[in-house]
Design a protein around this nucleic acid. Structure first.
Length: 217
DNA sequence: CATGGGATTGACT
DNA sequence: GTCAATCCCATGC
């Protein structure tokens, strides 16, 4: 990246298409520390997983279908799909057009618009007299939670992650590189042995289960 | 057209 | 630890 964030800037410039036009596991590792934002709500990526058409856990494994069109499209777009009938999950499409691959964004550290996130995660209808507002580390600590917190809907599918509405920005040069650990992907039944999950070590916003093995990446 | 299975979460035993 | 909610879509008849 030739352009450096201005001094004091909280976040960097949007990641270029070329960033995503690379092997998906590499991109998953390097998205750690970047930021996701939508309409004033933003967070730092602390957990990702890679998916590639060559392995059966990836939706693109089934080939080009109406569902996987975005996955096989140009890199740098959002692939948003509904999971378990309830949650919208956010992915960043990677590798050249024609190759089905994406990085699942699994957890964020809330950075901006936090009260808005809390309101989305704790609507009036869900409040009981005994319940307490969710802690910050419960707002985005899972792929379904973070899309709810940011207000990401299925209509964002196919959107350009450089132009928005969802924007992913580069990590700033300020601060140390986070220590990243790798592990097996979560919630899948096929190709479970691939260690394509990347997490910031000891970050409370990472989803459960936390990686057992602590191998530095 | 009917069926079944999720890249999850939260409530409950 | 178990389990249901609920929608999209892939698959098969």
């Amino acid at each position: 990246m030739s352009v450096r964030a201005a001094p004091g800037a909280a976040i960097g410039r949007p990641l270029p298409r070329a960033f995503y036009d690379r092997p998906v596991v590499e991109v998953a590792r390097e998205l750690i520390g970047c930021t996701v934002e939508l309409e004033g709500a933003a967070g730092v990526i602390v957990e990702t997983e890679a998916y590639h058409e060559s392995e059966p856990a990836c939706h693109a494994f089934a080939g080009l279908t109406p569902r996987t069109q975005t996955l096989f499209g140009p890199p740098g777009r959002a692939y948003v799909y509904r999971s378990y009938g309830i949650h919208a999950l956010l992915n960043a499409v990677c590798e050249p057009a024609g190759v089905g691959a994406a990085v699942l964004i699994r957890a964020l550290e809330p950075l901006a618009g936090i009260e808005r996130m809390r309101a989305r995660r704790w609507p009036i209808s869900n409040r009981s007299s005994t319940g307490r507002p969710p802690r910050n580390e419960d707002l985005c600590s899972g792929p379904g939670k973070l899309t709810q917190a940011l207000g990401i809907e299925l209509s964002e599918n196919g959107g350009d992650l450089r132009a928005g509405p969802i924007v992913i920005r580069a990590r700033t040069s300020a601060g140390r590189d986070p220590e990243v650990v790798v592990g097996e992907r979560i919630g899948i039944t096929k190709a479970v042995e691939l260690r394509w999950r990347f997490c910031v070590a000891d970050n409370p916003n990472v989803s459960r289960p936390r990686p057992v093995k602590v191998r530095s990446a």
